[in-house]
């Protein structure tokens, strides 16, 4: 199987079939990443993923083989997601904090929703500052290594580890006492 880097190089040389192969490989995971980064907005995530690939294709001439392709792809996607949550951050932060307040009030309907572990995890991750959220999602949902995260976010590996460490500590606090099943 050709590596992502070889396929990116093939696109630079005009090979259209390489576009299809790269998209097939990365479309699903990329939508998943953006879905998690945009507050579970599926349509928005799909739009941003599409925009990521379009931008990638338009800037393919800037790709330098053999730089890691995956880190480049996620750097572009992160950039788009940041643009999005910069504009929508205030509203979402307020909405999320309200959700957590309601949980404390123990309203039956809301409690039923919040008891759903998936929702609690999603909300916990969304309470993290964006830079920690990016590192956590890239590491634990996209499976990127520390070095790949560093390359995608343009930060040193030490900073990646700091963000993961602080982010995980915060998640442990938020999810403490919640059953695992």
């Amino acid at each position: 199987m050709k590596s992502d880097e070889t396929l990116a190089q093939a696109i630079q040389h005009g090979d259209r079939s390489a576009v299809g192969e790269l998209v097939t490989r990365h479309h699903g995971p990329l939508v998943g990443y953006l879905y998690r980064m945009t507050g579970e907005q599926r349509l928005l995530a799909e739009d941003l993923a599409q925009e990521t690939f379009v931008r990638l294709l338009r800037s393919i001439h800037t790709y330098q083989y053999p730089r890691p392709f995956k880190a480049w792809l996620y750097a572009l996607a992160t950039h788009l997601a940041r643009d999005h949550y910069k504009s929508a951050d205030t509203q979402r932060t307020i909405a999320l904090s309200v959700d957590f307040e309601i949980a404390a009030d123990d309203l039956p309907e809301q409690q039923a929703i919040l008891n759903d572990q998936s929702q609690r995890v999603a909300m916990a991750i969304h309470t993290l500052p964006p830079h920690q959220r990016e590192a956590i999602v890239l590491r634990y949902y996209q499976g990127l290594s520390h070095a790949e995260i560093g390359a995608a976010l343009h930060i040193p590996i030490g900073t990646v580890k700091s963000r993961l460490s602080i982010g995980l500590a915060r998640l442990r606090e938020l999810l403490e006492g919640i059953p695992h099943e």
Binding site: F53, L57, A122
Partner: peptide
């Protein structure tokens, strides 16, 4: 285990095919 419970929706092959068409 807790993190794994938060699943993202999967994309359909039609959606990927549409994207490939657009990129082409």
């Amino acid at each position: 285990h807790q993190l794994e419970s938060w699943q993202a929706p999967s994309v359909t092959s039609e959606s990927t095919a549409r994207l490939i068409l657009r990129l082409n």
